[in-house]
Amino acid sequence: MFGKRKNPSSPITKPNDQYRLKTTGQQVTLLEDLGDGNVRIAMDRGPVGRDDIVSSRDITPA
């Protein structure tokens, strides 16, 4: 009546999208890899958020 219970697979983890700018240490969120070594990031500056395009070499995992 009831089949064998399968072992649950490991949960799918979301890749970490939190990085820091190497020059200032400010925490940023990786939004998109644009290719050619560039990425689009989001920065929180007070009540206003903004996004920018930087080289992928300018950020490091937080």
Rank of each mutant, 00 (worst) to 15 (best):
45 R>N: 10
37 G>P: 10
34 L>I: 01
1 M>L: 08
9 S>Y: 02
27 Q>R: 15
31 L>D: 11
30 L>F: 05
59 I>H: 04
22 K>F: 00
61 P>Y: 06
53 I>P: 06
33 D>E: 13
3 G>M: 08
58 D>R: 08
20 R>G: 01
5 R>K: 11
51 D>I: 02
1 M>H: 15
14 K>M: 07
35 G>P: 03
55 S>G: 09
16 N>M: 03
36 D>H: 10
20 R>H: 12
20 R>D: 07
52 D>C: 07
8 P>N: 14
48 V>G: 01
17 D>H: 12
12 I>F: 14
41 I>F: 00
21 L>Q: 04
38 N>S: 04
14 K>Y: 07
17 D>R: 15
42 A>H: 01
7 N>W: 06
59 I>D: 06
39 V>A: 08
45 R>H: 11
50 R>I: 02
48 V>A: 15
51 D>H: 05
49 G>Y: 03
39 V>C: 07
34 L>G: 04
36 D>V: 00
26 Q>A: 12
45 R>K: 05
26 Q>I: 09
14 K>L: 06
53 I>V: 12
34 L>C: 04
46 G>V: 01
47 P>N: 11
7 N>I: 14
28 V>E: 00
58 D>H: 07
61 P>D: 07
53 I>R: 06
31 L>F: 01
58 D>P: 01
50 R>K: 11
34 L>S: 05
20 R>F: 12
29 T>P: 02
57 R>P: 01
29 T>A: 11
4 K>I: 00
49 G>C: 09
10 S>T: 12
55 S>E: 02
12 I>D: 15
20 R>Q: 13
36 D>Y: 06
21 L>S: 02
7 N>T: 13
7 N>Y: 10
12 I>P: 03
36 D>Q: 04
42 A>P: 00
45 R>C: 13
22 K>D: 13
4 K>S: 03
47 P>R: 09
50 R>G: 14
22 K>G: 05
49 G>K: 14
54 V>L: 09
57 R>G: 01
3 G>S: 11
32 E>A: 12
50 R>Y: 13
4 K>C: 00
6 K>R: 15
39 V>Y: 05
36 D>S: 07
32 E>C: 15
22 K>C: 04
38 N>P: 00
9 S>T: 10
36 D>W: 00
16 N>W: 01
19 Y>R: 06
30 L>T: 00
49 G>V: 02
8 P>F: 05
36 D>N: 14
7 N>M: 11
54 V>K: 10
61 P>K: 08
26 Q>W: 02
23 T>I: 07
40 R>H: 08
24 T>Y: 12
10 S>N: 14
52 D>Q: 13
28 V>T: 06
16 N>T: 01
40 R>D: 05
22 K>A: 00
51 D>W: 03
30 L>K: 10
20 R>Y: 09
31 L>T: 04
58 D>T: 11
20 R>I: 14
42 A>S: 08
15 P>F: 12
49 G>W: 00
24 T>P: 08
2 F>M: 09
20 R>C: 12
29 T>I: 03
8 P>A: 04
45 R>T: 07
30 L>D: 05
43 M>P: 00
30 L>A: 07
31 L>W: 01
25 G>A: 04
52 D>T: 10
42 A>I: 00
